[in-house]
């Protein structure tokens, strides 16, 4: 199909609709607002519903309600708004409701600013909300992937009855690139657990409460089993010039784009650099990183945060090779030249 030059944020909405999503509940926040705006524009044209809620708290709970009815539904926000949604996300995870959440990260803490950042890694990947839950977290680095990974998030959410997240930064949301849109999903999976209006099955209940510790432990064990299954089957990453790499760079989202350029220019200078880009932040490609550790000399993790993903890299490498870290914060973004300098200093 033909290519369209489009913002990442808008590609999310078209991807979602192609994936069968017809319900969007949102609340404006820069740099994620184009997602709500595009949903407001396109949802009514495809027989769907867009509603601007009174807050992020309300919007995630509207998602919870709609998901209970078995439809594909989503919400999107940026960092401060995601903080507000966390209670609701935990409810969705506890009640095993599929839904898709998009976070276009911005600078923090507090109100911070609207420039790109990656400081929500811990809050999204490590839980954030209360309780022992996990969510598949997909990290696009292009407008095309904003569409493709949003679609994939809907599939994962339905397959595992779990919230799934697309985690991007302000740049990936605001950037325009050509996107080739895939075909629309024709039928969304039957959801025999959902609340229906013909109560053939009287046990239909969406809830996350269980007062009996034995029962709640059982429920937790079931969730953990599900998470292990996701870990075993849905690790995604991209390698770039990794085969003979001695120094391996690791970054996701817009950082990975800067790192492609850095790897190319390091190689021109005779340094054997390569890149691992985690596409799924959870499950994290820890085995892959561990495997490559033995073949390389050192790692450099680059993040737009105080060092959040780097902890997962260190766990994966487990001390067998040095793991260096370089970061920018507050909306700053490193240039390829800056990265090259860092590598040359190692």
């Amino acid at each position: 199909m033909a290519k369209q030059l489009i913002k990442g944020n808008e590609a999310v909405v078209k991807g979602a609709i192609l994936a069968g999503c017809r319900f969007f509940f949102g609340y404006p926040i820069t740099p994620a607002s184009e997602i709500a705006e595009a949903a407001a524009f396109y949802m009514p044209r495809v027989g769907g519903t867009f509603l601007q809620a009174e807050s992020e708290v309300a919007s995630i709970n509207m998602v919870y309600g709609a998901a209970s009815g078995g439809v594909r539904v989503m919400t999107a926000s940026s960092s401060p708004g995601i903080s507000l949604k966390l209670e609701g996300i935990s409810y969705c995870a506890g009640s095993e409701l599929p839904m898709v959440l998009v976070d276009i990260m911005r600078g923090g803490p507090g109100l911070g600013n609207i420039a790109p950042a990656q400081a929500d890694y811990n809050q999204i990947v490590k839980g954030g909300g209360h309780g022992n839950y996990k969510m598949p977290v997909l990290a696009p680095n292009s407008a095309q992937e904003m569409c493709d990974l949003t679609m994939q998030a809907f599939e994962l959410a339905d397959q595992y009855l779990n919230p799934a997240v697309v985690l991007a930064d302000g740049f990936i949301g605001q950037m325009m690139e050509p996107v080739e849109f895939p075909r629309a999903v024709e039928k969304i999976p039957d959801k025999d657990w959902a609340i229906h209006t013909d109560l053939k099955d009287e046990s239909r209940l969406i809830s996350s409460i269980d007062l009996e510790p034995e029962m709640l432990e059982k429920h937790n064990l079931k969730l953990q089993k599900k998470y292990r299954e996701i870990e075993a089957n849905h690790v995604q990453y991209e390698d770039y010039k990794i085969d003979d790499a001695k120094i391996i760079l690791i970054g996701y989202g817009v950082v990975s784009r800067v790192l492609y350029s850095a790897v190319d220019s390091l190689r021109q200078d005779g340094i054997k650099a390569g890149l691992i880009r985690p596409v799924s932040l959870w499950p994290f490609p820890k085995q892959h990183i561990a495997d490559l550790a033995l073949k390389s000399d050192a790692f450099l993790v680059v993040e737009l945060s105080n060092g959040q993903m780097v902890d997962d890299v260190r766990l994966a490498i487990n001390g067998v090779r040095p793991v260096h870290f370089y970061n920018r914060m507050g909306g700053m973004i490193p240039s390829p030249e800056e990265i090259c300098q860092q590598v040359k200093k190692l």
Partner: peptide, 27 residues
């Protein structure tokens, strides 16, 4: 209640109700 049941977070029942009613207007 022998009906479809959803348990909501503290204070959020009207938002949850909004979500399910929009998804299932005939309920």
């Amino acid at each position: 209640f022998r009906v479809g049941n959803i348990q909501a977070a503290h204070g959020r029942a009207p938002a949850v109700a909004t979500g399910i009613k929009r998804a299932m207007p005939h309920s």
